[in-house]
Design a protein around this nucleic acid. Sequence first.
DNA 1: AGTGTATTGTAGTAATCACTTAATTAAGGG
DNA 2: CCCTTAATTAAGTGATTACTACAATACACT
Lengths: 120, 120
Amino acid sequence: MSMDHVFAALADPTRREIIDRLRGGDKTAGELAEPLPISRSAVSQHLKVLEAAGLITRSKSAQQRIVALNADALTEATDWLQAAHDEWQQRFDNLDRILAEEVPADTSTTDPSTADRTAD
Amino acid sequence: MSMDHVFAALADPTRREIIDRLRGGDKTAGELAEPLPISRSAVSQHLKVLEAAGLITRSKSAQQRIVALNADALTEATDWLQAAHDEWQQRFDNLDRILAEEVPADTSTTDPSTADRTAD
DNA sequence: AGTGTATTGTAGTAATCACTTAATTAAGGG
DNA sequence: CCCTTAATTAAGTGATTACTACAATACACT
C-alpha cells in the first residue's frame, strides 16, 4: 500500500476515470467496463492494479464483482501532495510579498540562487 | 502538463525525494544528485521527467543548473485527489452515521453491495 | 448436467521505464 | 587553446506496462 503504487495507479487515465465514476457509488466490473473502449479483460487488470494500490476493494455478489472505493490508501498520497503544494504556494506568496515591499529580506533557506558567488 | 505526466512523475520514489528536498529551497542538479545512490546521468533524466510534467523549472547559472519547484502543475492533481478523498471520506461518514442510528436507510445510489449474499 | 452470463487468468506483444556507461555540450580558469 | 567541472544526451539492457485474444472459473436458470 505504498505511495509508489498509489501514484502509479493514478497515472493512468482509464484508472482515474474508473475512480471518478466510482465516486458516484459502488459499481460492478461490468458497469465500469461498459462505456470504456477496451476489453473487459483489460478493465479487470486495471481493477487489479487499483486493488493492489489499496484504492478499491472488490467483493463478490453472485457472478458479479462489486467494486468500491477505499479512502485509506489515498490519505497518505493526498497529504503528501497537499503539503508540497501548500509549502510551494507559501513560498510564492512570500516572494510576492518581498517583491511588493521591495525589501531585500533573506529567504533563510539553502538557496543557491541567492548565494553570492564571488569566485571559487 | 497533463495529470498523466504529473502522477507518473510522482510514482517514482527518487523523484518524490527530489521534490521533498526541493521544498527546502532551490538546488543545483549536483546537490540533488549527491546523496542519491544513482549516477548523475540518472538524476538528470529524472529531472527531465519532472520538468516535462511541469513540476520543476531549470535555469542556468554558469555551469550549474538551478532546479526550482513549480506549483502550477501540482494544483490540478492536488485538487483531483482532494476531491476524491473528501467525497470518499464523506461517504464513509454517512455510513458511520447510518450504522450508529441503526436505521435501515437505503443508500439511494446504485449500490449493489447491499444485495444479499446467500451462499458462496 | 448443460447453457448463458460475469469476470478473471494466461500467454504473447509492442511500448515505455529506470538505469548504466560513454560521448557531448557549455562555461571558467590556467 | 587546453583542461577541469557541471550537466546533459545517446545508446543499450532488463524489467514492467497496457493491451489483445483465448481459456478458465464461478454462479444462476432451466
